[in-house]
């Protein structure tokens, strides 16, 4: 009798847990279609397929509203450069955006936040927590640029490390191949 009660209780809780996770997963994928698609893909596809998918995402054009709203002041940095948590922090602090007022109207803010979060960098285990707000503090960025000497950064044709387009000609379209460092102007 007692053991039957325990079995009954155990199976009931198992069913509850299973139901709960189904509900949670459905809710999560409804909230973040891109993120959810990524996690399932990572589990079931080979590394080469993952790379191909990442390439496809790189070629996707940036959202025009994102380019027009954010690209007036800086390169419209590709959403895949930062994890969702970075974008969330950035988009909730736009009135104080790196020392400048970059506030947006409520509908624009909502639309752009969704776009950035849905297309954000797939979270990696090694990513620092909390995620940095500056792309130039991301370890992938530092690794990709570690061969560039300070002298070359001081080239007046590179206004700042934030000016991706100084070396990456298609940065404004969200496309980055190998950069071409501009020649130092003659003194």
């Amino acid at each position: 009798m007692n053991s039957r009660l325990i079995t009954c209780f155990a199976s009931a809780s198992l069913v509850l847990v299973a139901l709960g996770s189904v509900v949670a997963m459905t809710w999560f994928s409804a909230q973040h279609p891109a993120l959810a698609a990524d996690t399932t893909m990572n589990a079931s596809t080979s590394p080469s397929e993952q790379r191909a998918a990442a390439k496809r995402r790189q070629r996707e054009p940036l959202l025009p509203l994102y380019v027009s709203e954010c690209g007036d002041c800086h390169v419209p940095y590709a959403p895949r450069f930062l994890p969702a948590s970075s974008w969330q922090r950035l988009m909730t602090s736009l009135p104080e955006h790196f020392g400048s007022d970059a506030s947006l109207s409520e509908p624009t803010l909502g639309e752009l936040s969704t776009y950035l979060v849905d297309n954000a960098r797939t979270p990696r285990a090694k990513d620092p927590d909390p995620a940095p707000l500056r792309i130039t503090e991301m370890s992938w960025w530092l690794r990709q640029h570690d061969e560039i000497s300070e002298r070359r950064w001081n080239n007046p044709r590179i206004p700042s490390r934030a000016a991706c387009d100084a070396c990456h000609a298609k940065a404004d379209e969200g496309r980055f191949g190998h950069g071409k460092i501009p020649r130092m102007p003659k003194p």
């Binding site: 002041c73 800086h74 390169v75 206004p159 700042s160 934030a162 000016a163």
Partner: peptide
Amino acid sequence: GEHITTGKAI
């Protein structure tokens, strides 16, 4: 012009 921090052309 040019954005004072990012250098973006205006």
